[in-house]
Simulated assay, not measured.
Amino acid sequence: MSPVRRPLVRVLPLLLSVLLAGCGAPAPRDAAERDIREAVADWARTPPERLAGIPLEGWAYEVSEVRRDGGQATVRADLRYRLGGYDAAAAGSAREVRVARENGRWTVTGDRAAPGALPQLWDQGPVAVVRGTHSLVLGVGQEAGTLSAIAAEADRAVPAASAAWPGPWPGRTVVLVPGSVDGMAELLGRPAAEYRGMGAITTGRVGAGAAPADRVVVNPQGWAELSSMGRGVVLTHEVTHVATRTATTATTPLWLSEGFADRAAYRGSPATPEQAAPALARAVRRGEVPGGLPRAEDFAFGGDPEALARAYEGAWLACRLIADRWGEAALVDLYGRAGREPWPVAVRGALGVDPEALTKDWQEALRAEFR
């Protein structure tokens, strides 16, 4: 062996052992950290007593980080759970668990949403549970009669959504009712001003996949201001979003998603376009026929309420036109295609016309309706 190669042969095994030790070996944990992890594991084996009425399954905390400061420790963990009979897969929540050393033992002293994570409903107070035929209603700071009435409305909304959307979905819904609009905003991670005057909203995101834990969140103040018919329309609209979630993607036009949900909500209703679309009726009569179907930005909250109303009303009337002219099955087909095909391809495939012709037909229908 040459003198040049000999040192290389001797160094390689040592270098390899160092690399393997640095990359593959887990960081050692001291006895205190092991005890803290065990304390959290023991505490997290069963849900807290205050959640006894909620059908929780698969409840587990997975510790990801332990930060110790003397006799105190903060543990970062991921909570996983399912609502039995309602969730297709586990819901998740990042948590911060506080642990203290007391009488020689580590004990869990508190649990809350981790910084930057959304809280759970039970973080806002004791949760009351009402089970409907097709619904599970969880509320904080609400009277039992209010939650029962919402469950009854949800039980009517689920079959209405199923009638409009024959595609596969679980046929049941979970409704969260926080104590205030501020509580609603906290659950959704948005400013409360965005939800004032709103009756309800869903937690699922367009294009985010199967949304196994899609919830309807009710704004108690907005809900109280609605008429009986208005409550039915709002809840059916939101439940329809839950039903169509797996077929809704980033390519689905927002007007189609919102209009389809309103179509489901108004089916069988005695409300006329004049009654259900007053803002758009006023605009058309002023000669302000929309230049095109509503854009995604037209549905943004916080702007002109009249413009927002016109967007929703125009979307509903577009879906109503499609159902009346081409049939309910064609509207469902268009919705499904829009989530997986380019929009021009989806329109031609479902309706046999191009998008420009559909827009023109909608504009003419508005003029005829509100002349």
Rank of each mutant, 00 (worst) to 15 (best):
Y266S: 01
A318V: 03
K360P: 03
G352S: 04
R286I: 06
L121A: 04
P170Q: 11
R68D: 03
Y81E: 14
H134K: 09
R348K: 13
R76Y: 00
A73Q: 09
G292I: 03
A94I: 03
Y312N: 03
A265F: 01
Q221K: 06
R6I: 12
S135K: 04
A200H: 04
L317Q: 09
A210C: 11
Y81M: 14
S257C: 01
G199D: 07
G292F: 05
L136K: 10
R112V: 10
L187K: 00
G327A: 01
E57W: 11
A357H: 12
M198W: 13
P342Q: 03
A60H: 15
F370Q: 07
A265P: 00
M198S: 14
D123K: 06
D155W: 03
L138I: 07
A265T: 04
E274A: 15
G199Y: 00
D361F: 00
E143P: 06
A281W: 02
S17V: 15
Q275A: 15
A160R: 10
L280Y: 00
R80N: 09
R82T: 14
P3K: 07
V75E: 05
D155A: 03
L138N: 05
I54V: 15
A368D: 12
W165S: 02
Q275N: 08
V217A: 13
T46L: 13
D361G: 02
T173S: 09
L254T: 13
A307L: 10
P355H: 04
W362S: 02
A329L: 06
S162C: 04
A117C: 07
Q275H: 01
C319L: 00
R295E: 14
G197V: 07
P168Y: 01
L187Q: 03
P278M: 05
L321N: 00
E238K: 02
P191S: 10
P270V: 12
R98L: 14
W343L: 13
R320A: 14
P55I: 09
R156K: 13
V9T: 11
P28C: 04
A200F: 03
P28D: 06
E364A: 15
L358F: 08
V40P: 11
R245W: 04
V66I: 06
G268Q: 12
N219H: 05
A283P: 00
L56M: 05
E153R: 14
D298K: 05
P126H: 07
L188K: 10
A264Q: 06
P273I: 00
R112N: 05
V137E: 00
P355Q: 07
D324M: 02
A281D: 04
E274M: 11
R80V: 11
P178I: 09
S2Y: 04
A261G: 01
T236Q: 01
A100V: 14
W169A: 03
